[in-house]
Simulated assay, not measured.
Amino acid sequence: MDGKSVRLLIVALAVSLVVGGSLAVSDARAEFPEGPIRMLVAFTPGGSMDISVRAISAAAEKQLGKPIVIENKGGGGGTVALGVLANEKPDGYTLCGATTSGLIRSPLMQKVIYKPLKSFTPIIGFAYPQLAIMVPNESPFKDLKELLDYAKKNPNKIKYGTTGPGSGQHVQMELLAHQLGINWVHIPYKGSQDAIMALLGGHIDVASVGPEFVPVKRANQARVLAVCQSKKSPNFPEIPTIPELGYNVVDEVVFCIVGPAGMPPQVLQKLEKAFKDAMESQEFKKAVEQLDLITVYYNNKDFQKYMEECWLRTENSLKETGVIKEAATSPR
């Protein structure tokens, strides 16, 4: 074989290796997921976040062809699980069911180990939870005004429980306190279920909780004084909203699924589609109805934009009401 033929053979082999390598990478990406996906849940088992993430994950794994394994990591108003996620490989095999409380409010109010607008890849926003303020049936407070009037006249006498510092439930109560000049004692829990159990057990006077209030209300185990959104609860239209009662305090929370920052576009697209399609499943729709959730859809780009806007809006609100002087965590 002459020199020219040898050179041509080397070139042909090089081209085949490059093409073959590209196809192998393409095939590897096309095969995602090759194994189980780990889904962290930022709150304790049995709550609305846990149940809704389990439902959407069960439907999504049918689309993906691999199991999604749930792992609850409650605590810190949803920040514990997000702290774990921020240090995981961005390969799509570790995700987190979280809330905007853990992504936005908690980092504004307390220092966290991640950068809220930099450390994550948004995949989908899928629901708004209904938040509520409730007291035991034997409580002397028949409505929200009675509770707030007493709390104002009796500093630090009222103990209230929430899902943790910076959660929507915590912010709601602190905004009311700052607006009305109230001093009361915050008792943080790892989830709404824990706060409700503490309320029913007589350990706290008030609970500011998520949709977990729904079965408690249906069973007539506690008295709901108000819901914390601008719209009434679809299942309990008789319960007043906080704005209806004359208080200019409204907080919003979005349930979402995020991954670590830097996920490959092909992986993100596959996950985004799987979870979007999962929202059409009967198991997800049934869970949403039972939990009194309001469905919403944000894709990756829309949710990133929403988080940017929510950070600025919430930061300004917390500063204006005196809840914070400066953000406790840098967003980037």
Results as ranks from 00 to 15, higher is better:
Asn156Met: 12
Gly77Pro: 02
Gln63Glu: 14
Thr295Gly: 03
Lys217Glu: 14
Glu315Gly: 08
Gly164Tyr: 03
Ala98Trp: 04
Leu64Val: 04
Tyr306Pro: 01
Asn300Cys: 12
Val206Gly: 00
Cys310Val: 12
Leu144Arg: 03
Pro211Val: 12
Ala261Phe: 11
Lys115Phe: 09
Ile104Arg: 04
Glu272Val: 06
Gly322Phe: 05
Thr321Tyr: 11
Leu64His: 03
Pro165Tyr: 09
Val206Asp: 01
Ala28Arg: 11
Thr241His: 07
Arg332Phe: 15
Ser57Asp: 06
Leu318Thr: 03
Ser230Gln: 14
Asp251Thr: 15
Asp292Gln: 05
Lys115Gln: 10
Val214Gln: 05
Pro136His: 07
Leu148Trp: 07
Met197Thr: 15
Glu212Gln: 15
Ala55Cys: 08
Met109Trp: 07
Ser139Gln: 06
Met49Thr: 10
Thr163Ser: 13
Gln290Gly: 03
Pro107Thr: 00
Ile187His: 13
Asp91Leu: 11
Pro243Arg: 00
Tyr189Ala: 02
Gly181Phe: 13
Thr162Ser: 10
Gln304Lys: 10
Val224Phe: 06
Glu138Arg: 15
Pro122Met: 00
Ser119Cys: 07
Gln193Cys: 11
Lys190Ala: 13
Leu200His: 02
Glu252Ala: 11
Pro234Trp: 01
Lys111Asn: 14
Thr163Glu: 15
Pro234Leu: 03
Gly201Trp: 07
Leu9Ala: 11
Ala14Val: 12
Ala132Val: 10
Asn299Trp: 04
Ala219Cys: 14
Glu315Val: 03
Val6Asp: 03
Arg54Gln: 12
Tyr114Asn: 09
Ala195Met: 11
Ser119Asn: 02
Ile56Trp: 05
Ala30Glu: 06
Gln130Ala: 10
Met173Gln: 10
Glu289Ile: 04
Pro237Ser: 12
His186Trp: 10
Glu308Pro: 09
Glu315Gln: 11
Cys228Val: 09
Val250Trp: 09
Glu31Val: 00
Ala28Phe: 09
Ile239Glu: 01
Val288Ala: 15
Val15Ile: 14
Leu271Asp: 00
Gln172Phe: 07
Asp27Cys: 04
Gln229Cys: 10
Asn72His: 14
Leu148Lys: 07
Ile123Asn: 00
Phe275His: 07
Met279His: 10
Ala30His: 08
Ile196Gln: 10
Thr241Tyr: 04
Lys157Gln: 15
Tyr114His: 12
Gly74Ser: 11
Lys152Gln: 10
Asp27Tyr: 05
Gly97Tyr: 08
Pro129Val: 14
Lys286Trp: 10
Ala222Trp: 02
Arg29Pro: 01
Val224Arg: 02
Asn299His: 00
Glu320Lys: 15
Leu147Glu: 02
Asn87Arg: 15
Gly168Ile: 01
Ser192Ala: 11
Ile182Trp: 04
Ile257Asn: 00
Glu138Asp: 09
Ala12Gly: 06
Ile68Tyr: 02
